[in-house]
Design a protein around this nucleic acid. Structure first.
Lengths: 142, 142
DNA sequence: TCTTATATTGAGATTGTGTCTCAATATCAA
DNA sequence: TTGATATTGAGACACAATCTCAATATAAGA
């Protein structure tokens, strides 16, 4: 039996005595269809267009749950805007963000992860997740 | 002759053909007085209370300039809120943020910096600054 | 399947952050 | 001192995100 994102989400919700509602599934399904990084407003509009009936409030309420469950990650950029990314089935990665063209380059470094674990141990801190963004200029904008 | 934050800011502004105004100095001075992390709204209110005459718009316009000049850094937290920190004279550091009590622990790792440089080289990316935040639970909230 | 306690939803009001406008004013180099 | 140009401030505005609360859905037990 395949253990998919929806199973993870259901278990997560059950563990917190929250309910596995149509609205929450709809939001999760739509996110899993999106290839790129997205923001909540955009997600809501997409759902409206497809005539899926989920209110704005519910979309805004569901995304943080998905983040908490580990299926979605938050990306903060230079501007005030907050983006999200569906990360189920993807290896964890961090981002290089071009300050000029906005291009997002993904990268992963095992060494980096390792050092972060070290830092947490040293500070007696139990790390749950991290955000690492390097801002600068990509090859083209260099 | 001592080369202080105001000199750096003046030079930064001159280099961009921007003017070294009373309002900008006032904002910088107030920030340098603040010990903790701050947000712009709070900074604006503090200035009002002290009867320094700087408009909200100017405070909001000045902080990004200070970030660009390198005197101030942006800290993004889990919530939507954006915080800032006066970093002149301080060694660069990253943050551990407790998801429960909000405590912010600062740390610095030379190794971490080094690996980031490596990543940038590899991706042909010219890094300007970075944001690294590890979210989790501090000793007390463990 | 029915019941029931509890969580969730939606529509719209509301909050709060941050940006914009534009006439009046300050800056700074010549 | 002058003049070209950047900046300021007050308040309107844009927008993301949250809150309210009555109506409704969920899930577990009978």
């Amino acid at each position: 039996m395949i253990y998919g994102a929806e199973d993870i989400f259901r278990d997560f919700l059950q563990g917190k005595d929250l309910k596995f509602t149509h609205e929450r599934i709809t939001v999760l399904r739509e996110i899993s269809r999106l290839k790129r990084h997205f923001d909540i407003e955009e997600l809501y509009i997409t759902l409206r267009k497809k005539d899926r009936k989920v209110s704005r409030a519910s979309v805004y309420r569901t995304v943080p749950l998905l983040v908490e469950s580990g299926l979605v990650e938050e990306i903060k950029t230079i501007d005030t805007h907050t983006y999200y990314e569906y990360t189920f089935g993807k290896e964890h990665h961090d981002h290089l963000i071009c300050l000029k063209c906005g291009k997002i380059i993904e990268f992963h470094s095992e060494k980096l992860e390792h050092i972060q674990d070290e830092v947490c141990r040293k500070e007696d801190f139990s790390g749950v997740r991290h955000v690492l963004e390097i801002q600068g200029y990509c090859k083209k904008c260099g």
